[in-house]
Amino acid sequence: MSQDNSAPRPAADPAADGPARGRGVLMACCWLWVGLPFGYGLYELGLKLKQLFTG
């Protein structure tokens, strides 16, 4: 544990210093990280939803 410095200091982040392309890759990866499981959930929901009209 250490002291919480009150003066804000920017986080050291390679993405911030890298080119815009690096940030674009980071953006795509992050959205895919959450988007893929969400897509899986929606797909499974779609399968169940069909039962409303066919069941």
Partner: peptide
């Protein structure tokens, strides 16, 4: 800490 998560430019 909050101070370490301030967004860089």
């Amino acid at each position: 800490a909050r101070s370490r998560s301030v967004a860089p430019p």
